[in-house]
């Protein structure tokens, strides 16, 4: 999980079991539940989700803090709620 000590993860969401567009939908639902400034960790697969979910979250105004490679084909995307 997160190696960076500059943030505290408020919630996590696993989107490895769904496909587009529900990947982004689940991430968006999770981040909407947070308060401004809180941090969400999104567990996602390599490939299409990695390509699209960070981009979509950025377009919504959120800040990507880190992307941690779990070296098993999955990643943890660390996002700060900014919108």
């Amino acid at each position: 999980m997160a190696t960076n000590e500059n943030y505290t993860i408020a919630d996590t969401v696993d989107i490895t079991d769904v496909v587009c567009p529900v990947t982004f939908v689940k991430a968006k639902v999770a981040i909407e539940e947070l308060e401004l400034g809180e941090v969400l960790s999104v567990h996602l697969n390599d490939g299409e989700p990695l390509l699209n979910v960070p981009r979509s979250l950025k377009e919504e105004g959120h800040q990507i803090l880190a992307l941690n490679d779990n070296e098993d084909g999955t990643y943890d995307l660390i996002v700060k709620k900014n919108a």
């Binding site: 567009p21 529900v22 982004f24 939908v25 968006k28 639902v29 377009e59 919504e60």
Partner: peptide, 11 residues
Amino acid sequence: LERYSRHIILK
């Protein structure tokens, strides 16, 4: 979530 996904995606 799936039924309304095209709504939820909209900003």
